[in-house]
Amino acid sequence: MTQEIILETRDLAKHFGGLKAVGGVNLRVRAGSLHAIIGPNGAGKTTLFNLISGHLKPTRGQVFLRGQDVTGLPPHRLAHMGLGRSFQITNIFPNLTVLENVRLAVQARGPDNFKLWHDYRRFSRYISRAREVIEYVSLKGKEHLLASALSHGDKRKLELAILLASDPDILLLDEPTAGMASEDVPELMRIVEHIRQTTGKTILLVEHNMDVVMRVSERITVMHRGRVLAEGTPQEIAANEAVQEAYLGSWGTRTG
């Protein structure tokens, strides 16, 4: 629909000592699109996400959100500007219930966070919204379990639920299916696709499963050693010889 660039990085770089984990990346993400970032282990995908979401300060370069320079803003400020992310390594509130994990994410966007004198259980709209999201990621029935007691697959669903509940415009999904049993992967990806189809949200997705990436994304950026190797539609990427040589061959064997 719209061709507006909602997220852009210019010459974004992060060096860890001598290692150029991200070495000058230019990325343009269209509003409402599903844009995948692929690349082998250590290519710098997670580091790029950390730079965009404010968890790391860049060595060089800039990040723009809706044309506004947001380089170096802390994560909580970016969250209020509509940027949300999930983590490759599950990042939840372990000793709280599933419901409370999600409810806290809903509450974060509301106006009641600095109310010290009201019982949190009286804000029933947060609770009911949290229950909706829990049902959406098919964790219904597990609301009262502690997050730490969930199976790995369910933790990944919770990870996604927390992100969805905070209702961002731009979702940074860092390998949402990481470590999941292969039979659980389609269900989670169906949720991601459903979000994409039913909302106008922009999704930036890091994913290793090439079948999934080729099917769901509109654009793909291929990273290698901290740099962008290629960018294009799935067809273009599949046809790109450099990419094929460097990755698709080896991935083909990896994912079967």
Partner: peptide, 18 residues
């Protein structure tokens, strides 16, 4: 509750906008 969330996982709490 936000305070408890910070105890549990400060990074995630900040990522949510707190």
């Amino acid at each position: 509750r936000v305070i408890v969330a910070i105890r549990e996982n400060e990074t995630r709490a900040a990522t949510l906008g707190y």
